[in-house]
Simulated assay, not measured.
Amino acid sequence: MRVAIGSDHGGFKLKQEIIAFLVEEGVTFQDFGTHTPEACDYPDIAFAVAQAVARGEYDRGIIVCGTGIGVAIAANKVPGIRAALCHDTFSARMSREHNDANVLTLGERVIGFGLAREIVGVWLKAEFAGGRHARRVDKITAYEQEALAR
């Protein structure tokens, strides 16, 4: 699995912790920034990670900001992205199994490092269940394509 990861300054410390976890787990990843704790604009990072996933260069993406909200909103503007803001392991698993989320967003100011590691671990291992869920995800994709064609 190849993971694109990024954060703004508000998620920088948590992103570093997640990177350490990915290294421990042997997950291949690319850090899309920011590379310092200096202030930056979260949409720039979210778009870069989401576009890399949407192009198929990475299987999944992880984006961190202070709350996870801003990067989720931005990432979901990229066609083909289903970004899920998760602050617990149940939501993380369900976002994969039921919604086929391809981007996980997290908030550094909302969860601690230990919980973030658990969430990322569960999210990376979970697989899309398909079945009735595929029909629903397909409807989202079809709507997105129709909207783009207008």
Rank of each mutant, 00 (worst) to 15 (best):
R2S: 11
R2W: 05
V3P: 04
G6C: 11
S7H: 12
S7N: 09
G10Y: 01
F12W: 15
F12S: 03
F12R: 09
K13L: 08
Q16Y: 00
Q16T: 13
Q16S: 15
E17P: 04
E17Y: 10
I19T: 13
A20F: 01
A20L: 07
F21H: 11
F21R: 10
L22I: 09
E24D: 13
E25G: 04
G26L: 13
F29L: 10
G33I: 07
P37T: 04
E38D: 15
D41F: 14
Y42M: 06
Y42Q: 06
A46R: 12
A48P: 02
A48R: 15
Q51G: 03
Q51T: 12
A52L: 11
A54F: 07
E57L: 13
E57K: 14
Y58I: 07
D59S: 14
D59R: 10
D59F: 04
R60P: 09
G61N: 09
I62P: 13
I63L: 15
I63H: 00
V64L: 15
G66R: 06
T67A: 13
G68S: 08
G68L: 10
A72L: 02
A72S: 15
A74T: 15
N76Y: 09
K77L: 07
P79S: 06
G80K: 05
I81L: 08
R82C: 00
R82E: 00
R82F: 08
A84E: 05
A84D: 03
L85W: 13
L85C: 05
D88H: 03
T89M: 07
T89H: 00
F90A: 02
S91H: 11
R96F: 08
H98A: 06
N99D: 09
D100P: 11
D100M: 04
A101K: 03
T105R: 03
G107V: 00
E108N: 14
E108T: 05
R109V: 02
G112D: 07
F113Q: 05
L115M: 06
A116H: 06
A116C: 06
I119M: 01
I119V: 09
I119R: 00
V120A: 09
W123Y: 11
W123M: 08
L124S: 03
K125F: 00
A126D: 06
E127V: 06
G130Y: 12
R132Y: 12
A134E: 14
R136D: 07
R136Y: 09
R136S: 08
V137L: 13
D138E: 15
D138N: 15
K139F: 04
I140S: 05
T141M: 07
T141R: 12
A142F: 08
Y143N: 12
Y143K: 12
Y143S: 10
E146W: 06
E146V: 01
E146R: 14
E146H: 04
A147Y: 10
A149M: 05
A149G: 04
A149C: 00
R150L: 04
